[in-house]
């Protein structure tokens, strides 16, 4: 499955240290803007890791570098010790939902999933299975242009689940979902992680995130300002939201 020399194979055979996401010293500049500045953290199996930060903090850019879409200026992002881009059929080990990377509007939902499945040798019947799983069976033959925001999000989640991966990387998975959809995703992610899988998700919704995650990583203006188990990060604050505002310096008086 992995390309090139796989130094971790002995460990993997022992069943240890599997599905670990390790980000080390990752940096990315857009011109003079340091979008991501020396970011390091990890996400471990059996836990849901929440990646939080205000708009423009660098969450999406970090996840895009993790998945090999954007080239970092420095640093590394590994999954089980190898860069994502070295995994031969990545869908079978890592499922991803990315902000700003979606289907062509004119294509039918099922066709979008079909080409993704083909590219990674995923059996064709998985397409209808994941459509069923995210509640989109009725819209399989509908062009994505006619999807609502939440339906597009569900299609993206379906694509992430196609290869039955052990690791999920989701950029704002709750975006556009109705309360029922959010609850379904939360329940799914919790039980998914409980089976020993790894979940890394970014979010804006503090209340929702607090109920979903085990660990949090908070990023502000490109730099990590706090990370650890949820209880440790929120210690001394009434809620994750309060902790978040205290850490990011956002205040109630800050108006547009």
């Amino acid at each position: 499955m992995f390309h090139g020399r796989d130094r971790l194979q002995p460990l993997r055979n022992l069943g240890a240290w599997v599905n670990v996401i390790t980000i080390t010293g990752l940096s990315k500049r857009f011109g003079s803007n340091k979008a991501v500045d020396n970011v390091s953290f990890s996400a471990t199996p059996g836990r849901v890791t929440g990646f939080l930060g205000p708009n423009g903090a660098g969450k999406s850019t970090t996840l895009r570098m993790l998945l090999g879409l954007d080239r970092p200026n420095s640093g590394t992002a590994h999954i089980d010790g190898v860069p994502y881009s070295r995994i031969e059929q990545p869908l079978r080990s890592v499922g991803a939902l990315l902000d700003g990377a979606g289907p062509v509007p004119e294509r039918r939902g099922a066709d979008h999933l079909r080409w993704i499945a083909q590219s990674n040798g995923v059996p064709r019947n998985r397409v209808s299975e994941v459509l069923e799983q995210v509640g989109l069976s009725h819209a399989a033959k509908t062009r994505v242009r006619k999807y609502s925001l939440g339906m597009k999000q569900r299609l993206g989640l379906a694509a992430a689940l196609l290869g039955e991966p052990r690791t999920l990387v989701l950029d704002e998975p709750a975006n556009g979902l109705d309360p029922e959809g959010i609850r379904t995703v939360r329940t799914f992610l919790r039980s998914y992680a409980a089976k020993g899988n790894t979940v890394l998700l970014s979010s804006h919704l503090m209340g929702e995130t607090a109920e979903t995650v085990d660990d949090v990583v908070i990023i502000n203006r490109g730099s990590i300002i706090a990370q650890g188990p949820l209880a440790d990060v929120t210690a001394g604050h009434s809620s994750l939201e309060e902790a978040f505002f205290a850490l990011t310096g956002g205040t109630q008086s800050e108006r547009w």
Binding site: R64, G68, P90
Partner: peptide, 25 residues
């Protein structure tokens, strides 16, 4: 050109991250 609509290239590269292979395909 379809790859440059709605960030589609991002999906393509995330499922076939070895870009040489993607282009050859």
């Amino acid at each position: 050109g379809q790859e440059f609509r709605s960030g589609h290239l991002g999906v393509s590269v995330s499922v076939v991250p070895r870009r040489g292979k993607l282009v050859v395909g």
